[in-house]
């Protein structure tokens, strides 16, 4: 029953595109039961009514790229019982973490007419690099079913079912024919965290790794296969440098390719 004792939910945005928050609004059929079970106290994307903390559940989207945000996430942590990061930006730094591989000073000079007005950090970092995180939802964007599973788990006080195995197992359960084996299409599924339901291979595309590394990825074992399929070193490097470029296992893979081919 709705009542004053409903857990209070807040949704926060850092450097990100809002796509993961929109997944919440995308839960059309389930949105009413959610609103029934939790009080949506702070969700700018959905309502201008904003309630003060503390919050029982904070969903955090986006990465830390400016000094103000590094301070803001600490305040949010202090006001939150469960802090859950949602999406590739929050969990690994996102596509904007490509700056971690380059010289941000140079970007500032080239891109902005008055770079002195700009205060930014040299890196884009995941939320967990700043504060303790209780659970994370991967993906660019996150998957609606995983969001509902997580909220359901928190509400009933149980451990969420969020397997950290590979996309391949989801492919096989779904009956997909492996695109790597049957088409020679490069695929990151063997090193990528499950959760999407193997959508891309179901449409004959290789996995782009938007859920980031799986629990025990072995990218070094995949590189020779991708090379044998004809990927050039610069393509291979880019393959691992997308939404989760700064996730340690993907970062190590792109750097090992770069080191082998020497400086650009």
């Amino acid at each position: 029953m709705p009542g004053p004792s409903r857990p209070r939910l807040a949704v926060w945005k850092f450097a990100s595109c809002d796509g993961c928050q929109l997944t919440m609004l995308d839960c059309e059929d389930e949105l009413l039961p959610i609103a029934d079970r939790v009080e949506i106290a702070n969700f700018h994307e959905a309502s201008s009514a904003v309630g003060d903390g503390p919050y029982d559940i904070s969903l955090v989207e986006g990465s830390i790229t400016v000094p103000e945000d590094a301070a803001r996430i600490r305040e949010i942590r202090a006001q939150s019982r469960f802090l859950v990061t949602i999406g590739a930006c929050a969990t690994s730094g996102g596509i904007q973490a490509l700056r971690n591989f380059a010289d941000v000073e140079e970007f500032r000079r080239v891109v902005y007419a008055r770079p002195e007005y700009l205060r930014t950090l040299a890196t884009s970092t995941p939320i967990a690099a700043h504060v303790p995180v209780d659970a994370e939802l991967r993906g660019c964007p996150i998957h609606k079913a995983q969001l509902l599973e997580l909220l359901g788990a928190i509400l009933s006080g149980r451990r969420p079912n969020l397997p950290a195995d590979s996309v391949c197992i989801e492919c096989k359960r779904r009956g997909n024919v492996c695109v790597l084996v049957a088409r020679g299409t490069p695929c990151l599924g063997p090193v990528t965290h499950a959760g999407c339901g193997a959508i891309c291979p179901a449409f004959h595309r290789g996995c782009y790794g938007c859920f980031g590394p799986s629990e025990a990825p072995v990218p070094d074992a995949l590189l020779p296969k991708l090379e044998a399929l004809g990927m050039r070193p610069e393509e291979l490097e880019r393959f691992f440098q997308t939404f989760n470029a700064a996730a340690p296992a993907f970062r190590a893979a792109s750097e090992s390719v770069r080191n082998r081919r020497g400086p650009p």
Partner: peptide, 11 residues
Amino acid sequence: ARCLGCTNCTM
């Protein structure tokens, strides 16, 4: 060293 641990063989 060659194995991806991807589960495909078992599936």
